[in-house]
Each structure stands twice: as C-alpha cells, then as structure tokens.
Amino acid sequence: MRVITVFIAIISGLAVLSGYFLSGLFPVLTEVQTHLLNGAIILTGIAALVGIFNLISVHTDKVRRGEKGSVYSALLVISLVITFFLGIILRPEHDAMQVVMNGIVIPTEAALMGILTISLLYAAIRLLRRRVDMMSIIFLLTAVIILFGSATLPFGEIPLLGTFSRWVTQVWALGGVRGILIGVALGSLTTGLRVLFGADRPYGGN
C-alpha cells in the first residue's frame, strides 16, 4: 500500500508539474494536467462532504452518549441536517437559502468578527504589560501609526500622517512582507519537492 500511494503521489505530481513547464513542448501535458486537476477538484469537493459527515458523526455520538454540551451538538446536527436537505431540495441559490445565509450565517460571522475588535484592542493595550521588547514596541507603534493614518479627523486628514502611514505600509512593511512571502514560497517549494520525492508522505504512507 505504501508503495502504491507513493507511486501515485509522485506520478500524479510529476504529471501536473510537467504541465506547467513542458506544456509548450508537449501540449498534451496541458490536457493531462487539466484532467488530473479536474479529478482532484472533484475529489476535494467530495472531501468537503466527507468532513461534514464526520462532523455529523462526531456530534451525533456526543448526543448519543449524552455528554456535556450534547444539547448544543443536537442543535448543530439538527440545523445541519435541515439546512442540508433544504439546500438539496431548494438548491443553495434559492431565496430560502438566502434567508438562511443572510439571517444566520452572515450576522453570526460578522458579529464574531465585530467582537474581535474588542479583543484585538484589549490585547494591544495589555501587550506592554506582559512583554516589553523592541518588537512589541515596534509592533504597537506601527499599528498606531497605521490606524491613525487610516483615520480622518472631522477637519480632515492629519498632515503628513497619512503619507507617513502609507510610506510605512508600502516600503517598510513591504520589505518584511516580501521576506515572509519568499520564505513561504521557499517552504512551499521544499514541501512540494519532498512530497514529489516521496520524502514526505502526509497521506499516511509512513
């Protein structure tokens, strides 16, 4: 099984990778890549279903065992099942599903995001009490500058602050973020190569 999985991972990966760089020489590789990717995205969508079924089973077990918080789990399962069958019957773009989306999903998520404002501010205020170092100070100063530069006063923008804020964002922050992006890209490159070489087998081939 291990050999099979490694073989599949390497072969499929190399086929897709060749579609990036060798499609000019071998146009068929583009088609191969497309078919492989099409299969992959279908399986990914099915994997989402698998995850949802797993969620159902977990909370159903909690309800069955009567664990603490099983009421919430029951609510979760019920709401999930209802929404699923409603979506299957009515389709997701139906007006009823719009009500579900606009009445439950969007308000809840947005409210949670709104509460994050309080939490972020609270954390920023308490940061220097816990940790006083250069990075914390720079972090807070930068945040204050950007926040201040993003705001306006009733009489207009604060002179030079907006410009300075944008300069910090577009120059100083750009250097750090670019370094982070390059680092992320290097990490992705390394990880991809390890997978294609069979060194990493996150699919359980260890």
């Binding site: 599949i8 991972a9 499929s12 492989l36 992705s188 991809g192 997978v195 294609l196 996150p202």
Partner: peptide
C-alpha cells in the same frame, strides 16, 4: 495520495 501529489505539484509550481 493523489490529492497530495497533485496539490504539491500545483503549490510548488
């Protein structure tokens, strides 16, 4: 394994 292989290639490229 198929998904990981394809995903790794796409991410790498």
């Amino acid at each position: 394994s198929f998904l990981v292989g394809v995903g790794a290639a796409v991410t790498l490229a």
